[in-house]
Design a protein around this nucleic acid. Structure first.
Lengths: 388, 388
DNA sequence: GTGAAGAATGAACACGTTTTCACTTTCCGT
DNA sequence: ACGGAAAGTGAAAACGTGTTCATTCTTCAC
């Protein structure tokens, strides 16, 4: 079996053309990425409806029971003679039957979908959070419905309307600057919405506060440990390379840093404006040391930002980390232990956080009128090689 | 408004306790991560059903039209007097109505959900692909339904059955070693399945080949450029730090490297077994240079692996990159331009790839019986600082 | 053996939409 | 004005399930 590439509609995108004239044995051309479609086309056509799936009706017929019995067999709480349930489940498996969740959602009002709104899946912290979230939700019988919003962390009304059509049971929004009324307009009273970033302390948040479940994170602990460590190594002039301006996470972190530094008699942090990204943090650092006054130590609003700071210091400013400048991050993402960075950082226990979040969500779904619950997680400093 | 932390059920996880006795003004305690729930509770209760959403029925009543007209107003292809459509859409907006997708799916057989199965959302390449995919699908009116499978890239039958319940219109699986028959057993004839890793060239794949849509990627172009560049700098002994053994992506890349090196009269690559991860690549590199014979240049199966290689060389083996050892990766993920690595790598145009994929999917959904289509993308070498 | 309590059962309804199918109205060329 | 085609319209059926409710069957204490 041989084939010539120029028989295909080849899209050539490289900066020099591929060898279109090369004719290789098929076994040597497995530079193919490959996509199967309709893998099941050849399967038996009996016992399936026109749409290709077995229904409860068909299972019932084959098992000589009513359709309702089939429904009950799949609901553990329903009462059904054990032998009958076993028979039904066996036949269901033979016919490869699973209850249709769309139909189930229609009547029960539970889609078992949790909407996740995120500005950027690739962001390290977010991607790790989504990963853990999906695992946890999957274990509880829910599926993650992913939506992207604008990169500036603002909430898009069009997106909310769009998402609403899918009827999520709950929504987790990695989103800033969104008013409860906006959310309420586009989602139903019954849908709990979880804003997954730190609160800003703005008046409207405080007002809404007591009505809602809360997951608190004590930034203070980790920040105190970090500042204490920096002080111990003689750092006095500390800079903060910020996250997105006015975002909840950035405000919370910057404010806490300011409070702790004040308590310890340090001058307020020098603020270098950035946006959580590597590139902006890199540029902000260059600015800080070339145009600005520099610093003994740099706090970055997140780990990725800290990587940008470190690379700017080492590879462009010819400063040593940690000898000349110490660097501390926030999050402790998986990449922080990579040797090139080996970052000292304030850790959030991501898995614990996601477990707590899923716990809150499920509790609220099972009991919508339960009193608001508050859970609090702590932070701690993970000491590696960028302070010392 | 003041509050004391020890009035909360504080979960303390740090390695030293937080200052529970501290009492700060609320505005200074915004170390809270914060979660809103049921933001809409206070909204007006009129014009909503018990479940909290307006229905087509209610819109029809208010607009003095039939319920069918409402349905048609939301379907651009249906014929409806423009004035009427406008009226309905306006009233729908007032009532904050959106068609329920579960009900729509039930009758039309289209859920507008695309299942994405992935072993690890955090993997850089996968997370970037998921991000682009979600954007593209969202633009076409589809939503991404995320599922996690086992980390060894194998396909979990239980997961397939679970996912099937959600009735995805199509499935994109970042998965290895899965037989078409397994997929077919758990998904319907009507659901196109896209395996999103390179083919292995194994007999069963070849057999299935002509029946399916395909998205080819010409590894050859980029690999030839890379090998040519390495040869130009005098590299002769080239090692390959592999991906997961027998995985499609790894096999395709390793085989192509072998073919190209043979064509150019080089000895076969020295194989160092790894699994696409930073840590294993790091360890494999130490092994290669301490126990094994070392190399002039290292090809890594992916960029993250290349980072592990670089860090092992520089920070543990005290070798210089690129002076002592040259390194080339695969993928060109966003992190590859970070200064600490500045990686020379074989680039896949991710956006273009995702666009082509979504194009194939939509075409197949709109016309299930269309003849199989094949698209081919090219690769190219992005030259940065790890070869030279 | 008897009665009552509880478990098991299936018919009918409900969920919110799209699609089909007749029917009515509008439009256009002559 | 006229006929025919096209566009517009709403009643009814369908999608596949969970839930309610009245009925039948089983169990168990006496």
């Amino acid at each position: 079996m041989q084939r010539s590439y120029d028989s295909l509609g080849v899209i050539v995108t490289g900066f020099h053309a591929p060898r279109l004239d090369s004719v290789l044995p098929y076994s040597q051309t497995n530079e193919h990425d490959f996509i199967d479609t309709r893998a099941g086309v050849a399967l038996s056509q009996d016992e399936t409806t026109a749409r290709g799936r077995a229904t409860a009706e068909m299972v019932a017929e084959r098992a000589n029971v009513s359709r309702v019995a089939v429904s009950r067999a799949f609901n553990p709480h329903a009462s059904l003679k054990p032998a009958k349930r076993e028979l039904i489940l066996r036949i269901a498996q033979e016919l490869n039957y699973t209850p249709d969740r769309a139909a189930r959602a229609l009547v029960s009002g539970r889609s078992h979908l949790v909407g996740v709104i995120v500005p950027d899946v690739c962001s390290h912290w977010e991607s790790q959070e989504i990963d853990a979230l999906t695992t946890a939700l999957q274990a509880e019988g829910f599926a993650t419905l992913l939506f992207k919003t604008r990169i500036d962390y603002s909430m898009d009304e069009q997106l909310l309307a769009y998402m609403r059509g899918f009827n999520p049971d709950s929504v987790i929004a990695f989103v800033e600057n969104v008013k409860p009324t906006t959310l309420a307009k586009f989602l139903d009273r019954a849908v709990p919405i979880y804003i997954h970033y730190p609160r800003s302390g703005a008046p409207e948040d405080r007002q809404a506060g007591p009505l809602h479940d809360r997951l608190n994170v004590l930034h203070r602990t980790g920040v105190e440990q970090a500042v204490s460590l920096l002080q111990g190594y003689g750092a006095r002039r500390i800079a903060y390379v910020s996250g997105v301006d006015k975002s909840r996470a950035n405000t919370a972190r910057e404010d806490m840093l300011r409070v702790v530094m004040a308590e310890r008699g340090l001058a307020p942090p020098i603020i270098a404006a950035s946006d959580f990204s590597y590139d902006r943090a890199y540029a902000a650092t260059l600015d800080l040391f070339r145009v600005g006054e520099g610093a003994d130590a740099v706090f970055a609003a997140n780990d990725v930002g800290a990587f940008g700071v470190i690379d700017a210091l080492r590879h462009e400013l010819n400063l040593r980390v940690p000898e000349d400048v110490k660097v501390v991050g926030f999050d402790d993402i998986a990449q922080s232990h990579w040797k090139s960075y080996n970052l000292t950082t304030v850790k959030f226990d991501l898995e614990e956080r996601v477990r707590a979040l899923v716990r809150l969500i499920l509790r609220r779904l099972n009991n919508p009128d339960a009193p608001p619950l508050e859970e609090t997680l702590n932070t701690r400093l993970v000491v590696r090689g960028t302070v010392g």
